[in-house]
């Protein structure tokens, strides 16, 4: 508050005036400091709550493998199929047991083999939902938002706005009931728009 100088009584040379001046300065200092404290307390308290999401781990995905499908549900000819990922979900206070938390494409890398590929359906460009498109003679993954396109092996089809291919997920086969093989996926989400695949915490 530099303007306060203009009203000071520094013109008077007497000692009394100087004392007054010092007292005036102290008053101004205290008033300013106290005023700052008054506003800081509620503001900082509010900002603490505002920033609290940064100090918690988010819920980008489960760190455990989740059973997503049976092996015999995946087409033998290598066509990808979309599956929902079902898991317990928390949204702040709400706990929803066994809810869809996302989806994945599962496909056989070569026809009739058990060698599986798994992609997160979220586009690495800007996070839209990628779909399987039939492009006349061949199938490819296509994003409806900015036309990112991907080969069935997940690699980008140029030209594309996507900085990287579809995000692969770890997949595991586990023996299930009645001799059916179960497909388990470690479902994760990743930050979009970056060349590097970085998992959300």
């Amino acid at each position: 508050m530099t303007t306060s100088k203009s009203s000071g009584s520094s013109a008077s040379p007497s000692e009394a005036a100087e004392r007054d001046d010092r007292r005036g300065f102290l008053t101004k200092l205290l008033a300013a400091v106290f005023g700052a404290v008054l506003i800081t307390v509620p503001l900082v308290t509010g900002l603490m709550t505002f920033f609290s999401p940064l100090r918690r781990r988010g819920s980008g995905g489960s760190k455990d493998f989740i059973r997503v499908a049976f092996l015999d549900e995946i087409p033998l000819d290598g066509t990808p199929r979309r599956f929902q990922v079902i898991a317990d979900m928390w949204d702040k206070w709400t706990f929803s047991p066994q809810q869809p938390i996302g989806s994945v494409f599962l496909a056989r890398a070569e026809p009739s083999t058990d060698n599986l590929r798994c992609f997160n359906t979220i586009c690495p460009h800007a996070g839209c939902s990628v779909r399987l498109a039939d492009n006349g003679d061949q199938k490819e993954f296509k994003c409806p938002c900015h036309n990112s396109a991907f080969h069935l092996d997940g690699s980008v089809i140029q030209p594309t706005p996507s900085p990287r291919g579809l995000d692969t997920l770890e997949v595991e086969l586990r023996p299930g009931a009645n001799g059916r093989q179960e497909v388990w996926v470690r479902y994760e989400n990743f930050y979009t728009g970056k060349a590097e695949k970085v998992a959300k915490a």
Partner: peptide, 13 residues
């Protein structure tokens, strides 16, 4: 009655 609330995997809460 509630399914085991085991949010440990997810961290939040």
């Amino acid at each position: 009655a509630q399914p085991e609330a085991a949010p440990a995997a997810d961290g939040e809460n």
